[in-house]
Amino acid sequence: MGETILEVTNQRTAFATGRGLLQAVDGVSFTLERGKILGVVGESGSGKSVLSRSIMRLLPGTAVTGPGSRVVLNGQDLMQMSEGELRRLRGPQMAIVFQDPMTALNPVLTIGKQISEVLTFHLKMGKRDARRKAVELLRAVGLPQPDVRVDQYPHQLSGGMRQRVAIAIAIACEPDLLIADEPTTALDVTVQAEILDLLQRMVRERNMAMVLITHDMGVVAGRCDEVAVMYAGRIVEKAPVTELFRNTAMPYTAALFASIPRVTDPPHRKLDAIEGRPPDLINPPPGCPFAPRCRFAEEACRRTVPELEGTATHQWACIKPLNREVAA
């Protein structure tokens, strides 16, 4: 067993809306060890992005965190911390890479400035040292001509290069936890693999822990140690990646596998292959939230919400799991 970096227990996050309370994250628990990568997979609206912001404690004012939610980073309970204390953790201990590199960088500040300010602010580095370190970081993330790029503005870079810059910003203070929130969704297919490889390399080289959030089962395949599948704000299946691929238990997970785009597909094929839409999170239906869209759903599925069950390594929230004898 490695050193535990992150421990999330029963995280519940809701938003006050005009219609009522929207339960975006509904009782999520997991732990993450140093050097490991956890993939969090789900459709848009499944609560995975809210989960990432809940961990960073970067929620808007309308958000309400449920009682009993606990996020422990390096043994520190983030729920008990003041905003000022949290601020000191963001950067040096936890960092995030956002989905869209086109909008995640400040258009009026140079790239070098956006990297070095983290260093001067948190590590109290001098301006000159911070700049040197920024160039070094840009080189580390594979940006060509780092000493020229450092003085350029985001609009002068391509999307892939900007995402490299965003990664450089995230790793600048050597955080223990890196959250990558759909880091490749907004990028060209050709660049996606490069960015994912880079993230994976950074985690291994710097011995961090990473939560990799994506809607694409194909992304987690070769890169994650463990995968958590999210649906309607809950984790519905969790297992080491090979186990998950080999012994899929949840019909939803199976549907996600079926929706992985293949090279053999005709271009512009509609990727959203799962019939129906995610449930209304303000007035959720009774029973299993996936039941209305599930081919295998029975009467019992619509009555009670299934709890996570299974073995120590592989859990699922389904009363009729696939590929296995129904436990008595």
Binding site: L58, G61, V64, P67, E83
Partner: peptide
């Protein structure tokens, strides 16, 4: 704070009334 996250999570115990 900008985030308001503190206010939001200030008392996990009285979250119900807060909502």
């Amino acid at each position: 704070d900008i985030s308001h996250s503190n206010a939001a999570s200030a008392g996990a115990a009285n979250a119900g009334t807060e909502v």
